[in-house]
Computed example of a mutant assay.
Amino acid sequence: MKIEGKVVIMCRIIACVLSLFLMLISCTEKIERVSKYPDLLNEAVDTIAYSQFVDSIKYIPLETTDACLIGNITDVEISEEHIFVLDLQMQTVWIFSRDGKYQGHVFHKGDAPGEYVNMCQFEYDESNRQIVILDLWTHSLLFYTLEGKYLKSIGLEISAFDFKILPSGGYVISLAGADNKEAGIYYLDASGKVVSQLVGRNQEHLIYMNSDWDLCSIKNEICFMAPNLDNEVYHFDGTELDTIQSFCMKPEIKHSYKGNVSLEHMEDFVRTRYIESEKWLFAAYWCAVFDLRYFLYSKAADEYLIGKYLKNDLDGVQCSGKTSMTKENTFLFWCAPEEDRNPILQILYLKK
């Protein structure tokens, strides 16, 4: 009995050791999956081809009429019934049907009640059928009907460059590109009051860099990869902030940026674009010395691509700009049309 008892004890010890060993392996694998070290210089190929990450392409020409001539596409959102085009040059949100037919627009630039001074982003609240416009100058959100009728305004407790409406209520706003101590990503309640700072900015990285957007949406979560000199990917559902991926980009940052600096001779890479879909992540990096690098990461394959150029090798139509739209595992780019015509949307259905 004593021998049998010793055997049982030994077996339990061995089982505990094996269990601990497996836990350590699991933790190690998790760390390896989370932490990656892409080298924007030494791993970059000349060209990333569409066929490496795109399954198919769909085009939607945006109708040109006497009442609708887009100055420049800044961002796009597609709902179940409509296409919305943010045009900062014209300070307008253009509205089209899903097949690109012009339906109307929202333009209320001014300083009177119900008007915005400097539109910098927008959202379509599909559940309430409202267009929400962010006014950079007055730090407020203005709400309009699809017909352009003004409904209300909400003052924000902190200024913002970008925002997203949380399905669970409230807003996520970005001030990540500012060169001050308030720079970061914030969670605001429905009245515009700050609930919490989700991510602050490294005080050594206060270079001013205002992108067209910092935030993306995937289902019920707001996604971001910010601030501009950091490369962690976060998801926020209104309750939990999760770090999904951490990219330790090479080469490492050489300089500190505690205030206004000129970008003309900048040696370090700064992120200028971020787009995230269900299966893919896209980022663009730029520095004055080495110019541009594109970074594409497949979540499913856990692999990345780095290149100096993007090339459409599927049908040869090159894009002229990108948007933050990523519904149903797509990227939405746009192509410049002939003169005096509106752009053409290029929907990239991404590989799974």
Results as ranks from 00 to 15, higher is better:
residue 281 L to S: 13
residue 232 E to K: 04
residue 177 G to L: 04
residue 257 Y to K: 04
residue 173 I to Y: 08
residue 261 V to A: 10
residue 251 P to F: 08
residue 206 L to E: 08
residue 248 C to V: 00
residue 228 N to T: 07
residue 253 I to M: 09
residue 173 I to H: 08
residue 150 Y to D: 06
residue 201 R to H: 05
residue 233 V to K: 08
residue 179 D to Y: 11
residue 160 A to F: 00
residue 277 S to C: 10
residue 240 E to L: 09
residue 210 N to A: 09
residue 238 G to E: 10
residue 175 L to S: 12
residue 144 Y to W: 13
residue 202 N to C: 04
residue 178 A to R: 02
residue 272 T to P: 01
residue 173 I to T: 15
residue 159 S to W: 03
residue 161 F to P: 05
residue 156 L to W: 02
residue 181 K to R: 13
residue 214 D to Q: 06
residue 278 E to T: 14
residue 280 W to P: 11
residue 250 K to C: 14
residue 216 C to F: 01
residue 259 G to P: 14
residue 183 A to F: 01
residue 221 E to D: 04
residue 243 T to V: 13
residue 220 N to F: 09
residue 241 L to V: 09
residue 257 Y to S: 11
residue 253 I to N: 06
residue 269 F to E: 13
residue 229 L to I: 09
residue 216 C to Y: 00
residue 280 W to T: 06
residue 247 F to E: 12
residue 258 K to H: 13
residue 262 S to C: 02
residue 179 D to S: 12
residue 161 F to C: 04
residue 236 F to Y: 15
residue 155 G to R: 09
residue 179 D to G: 02
residue 145 T to Q: 05
residue 219 K to N: 08
residue 204 E to Q: 08
residue 279 K to F: 13
residue 146 L to S: 02
residue 236 F to D: 10
residue 172 V to T: 04
residue 192 G to S: 03
residue 164 K to S: 13
residue 160 A to W: 01
residue 214 D to S: 11
residue 251 P to E: 05
residue 194 V to H: 05
residue 249 M to K: 08
residue 286 W to S: 04
residue 175 L to Y: 04
residue 150 Y to I: 02
residue 194 V to C: 14
residue 220 N to A: 04
residue 178 A to M: 12
residue 193 K to S: 11
residue 151 L to T: 00
residue 235 H to P: 03
residue 154 I to V: 14
residue 191 S to A: 14
residue 216 C to K: 00
residue 264 E to Q: 15
residue 196 S to L: 11
residue 237 D to M: 06
residue 164 K to V: 05
residue 261 V to Q: 08
residue 268 D to Q: 07
residue 259 G to K: 02
residue 233 V to L: 15
residue 285 Y to I: 01
residue 238 G to Q: 08
residue 260 N to I: 09
residue 179 D to W: 04
